[in-house]
């Protein structure tokens, strides 16, 4: 008869750690400095160095016209004031992190850069959770936008996004100048993820200030590729590839715009949005993401129970 049957673990590599947020003592104003990543096992399998429990980030923005109406209708007027939205999200929705998208910059010919800094400051004033800031997506205004974000968050150890292969210097420069970390996004491919990390390192961004975003396609619209890309990235790191040994963030930003959700029966649309996010986020955490992002406030409670149950009591160091 078999002796003890156990998980076969042949990993030696270690996932790096990244700290997001700085407390008063550290020169910031956040309620905590959160460390993500770490450990040398696959998520949820226990072992001697299991890494940390995945965290939940709530995504919101400063121009709700570019947000899903499912969320803006659910949230009401508060979406017109980013600071108030941040405060409310922190107090009522209770995520671990906030992720603030500067959607206002996504207008043609955007030039109001001082507003960028003010918005970030306001969000920081009205909330205490560690903050992720998403700047522009247009190379023409990247440099100025990221500079303002970085400056406004100086000392707060933000996580700044998003660097991509063709446009990473502005984000990297702002992060380096003001002490923040960077999200490195590549389109669903292990080698592209690795290549971008190397590029970032060459511009001076250290290992412990990079978070990999392997791009998460929506459920039914490419999620299968993203799921496997995440597993492959995590395993490559555990097998010793240091250029992939950063924690990962997963955000299926298209989820609320896909046909199945958008065109759901009006009475069920909210629940459809929540389930779509929940199934995606749970699966992303299982595939190895350290931070999972959601937009519908109602996704947070069931997602947190799921992650707690996955983690279990024996999960290891919190």
């Amino acid at each position: 008869m078999p002796m003890k049957v156990d998980i076969i673990s042949e990993w030696t590599g270690e996932i790096g750690e990244v700290t997001i947020g700085a407390t008063k003592k550290e020169g910031g104003s956040r309620c905590a400095a959160i460390v993500i990543g770490g450990g040398s096992g696959f998520p949820f399998l226990g072992g001697s160095a299991p890494g940390r429990k995945p965290l939940i980030a709530f995504e919101f923005c400063d121009d709700p016209k570019l947000w899903s109406p499912i969320v803006t209708e659910f949230e009401g007027d508060v979406v017109n004031d980013a600071g108030a939205w941040a405060a409310r999200a922190e107090e009522r929705h209770r995520p671990d992190l906030l992720r603030f998208y500067l959607t206002s910059t996504r207008r043609r010919g955007f030039q109001e850069f001082s507003q960028v800094g003010r918005s970030v400051e306001e969000v920081l004033e009205r909330s205490t959770l560690p903050l992720i800031v998403e700047g522009s997506i247009d190379p023409a205004i990247d440099s100025e936008t990221f500079l303002r974000c970085g400056e406004a968050g100086e000392g707060e150890r933000l996580l700044l996004g998003t660097a991509e292969e063709g446009r990473y210097r502005s984000v990297a420069a702002a992060a380096m100048a003001y002490g923040h970390s960077v999200i490195a996004q590549s389109p669903i491919d292990v080698n592209l993820a690795k290549q971008l990390n190397i590029l970032l390192r060459e511009t001076g961004v250290p290992h412990d200030r990079i978070v990999i975003d392997p791009y998460t396609g929506a459920l039914g619209y490419g999620f299968e590729y993203s799921y496997s890309a995440m597993e492959r990235i995590r395993y490559a790191a555990l097998k010793g590839d240091e250029d992939l040994a950063m924690p990962m963030i997963s955000s299926a930003i298209d989820s609320l715009n896909i046909k199945e959700v958008r065109e759901a029966d009006p009475g069920q649309r909210g629940e459809m949005a929540v389930k779509w996010e929940l199934y995606t986020a749970v699966s992303s955490a299982i595939a190895g993401a350290s931070v999972v992002c959601v937009r519908h406030p109602d996704t947070i409670v069931p997602l947190r129970s799921a992650i707690d149950s996955l983690w279990g009591k024996t999960g290891g160091g919190d």
Binding site: L219, E224, S228, E260, Q268, E271, M272, Y279, T280
Partner: peptide, 20 residues
């Protein structure tokens, strides 16, 4: 299962069991 749960579940299953 509610319809939203069922749809998300069936879609996830279709995704994971697609030949990569």
């Amino acid at each position: 299962l509610s319809i939203p749960s069922r749809n998300a579940l069936l879609t996830l299953r279709q995704n994971i069991y697609t030949d990569p």
